[in-house]
Amino acid sequence: MEALKINGVSKRFGRTQILDDISLTIQPQTIYALLGENGAGKSTLLNIINDRNFPSKGEVVLGDHEVHNHYPSLQRLYLMSDSNMYGKRTSVSGMFQLADEGYGHFDYELAHRLTKAFGVNEHARLSNLSTGLTTAAKITCALCVNADFIFLDEPMLGLDANHRNRFYRELMKTYEQRPRTFVISSHIINEIQSLVEHVFVLHDHHLIADEDVENLLNRAYTISGPADAVDQYTQAMKVLDQQTVGKIKTAYVIEKLDDQQPIPDDVTVTHMNLQQAYLALTNGEDEINE
């Protein structure tokens, strides 16, 4: 199956640069995280990929075809987002029907099971549901729609812990039964860390990371201990972020450690989780720009 390629996409609104020369490849049957602070351009990028917004420069290509206005390609992409593209009177089941008409073979059986589990009334109008239930209805639709590349913009918005857990479980289940690509944009990084294989980080309108989570975390370290010992040990490293509490310092680095350089006894080296790595990456980028 073909990959989805984003080639040199930039977006300007008047004088404001929203995306600056973004190139990345989205493989079939893979789960991705798209991370970035508010305003980094995540939603704009997802909208451009799905042809709901247009780039000032660059293109989105699926296989041999530019996605823009190409119906057969667009039928393979689905975007679930916060923005309301449904009419005021559209019900939950109406949303499912639209997905069925647009993409065919909608999985109603799974949809009924999920709405029941989430406590969503299928006859209710979307506009009358709470934030959490609206999200639950939309992720139900996204998990049941027949598309190869599914983009989830903030799919945990307003969901309580129970509903988030159910979502993760159902995502793993449907992904294993029918592998397809999911791109999850979220701020709840720690909860999606184990779900995703690969991560994209947008920062300041640029793509600053495009890497397998395992590879990234393998070389992402927190180094802590007495400040002078930590300073000495990290002397030749690029420290992306640091914290000092009293005499104890913690330095964050993302690079391969030199096996030849012994770790001092009073210095502790541990791996970061994805959230820490994300914070170190974005902070490190700010340091360069300052």
């Binding site: 789960i31 857990n165 993760y168 479980r169 793993m172 289940k173 294993e176 184990s194 995703v196 294989e197």
Partner: peptide, 8 residues
């Protein structure tokens, strides 16, 4: 994968 929410 389902119980632990880990990529298969």
């Amino acid at each position: 994968s389902q119980e632990l929410h880990i990529n298969p």
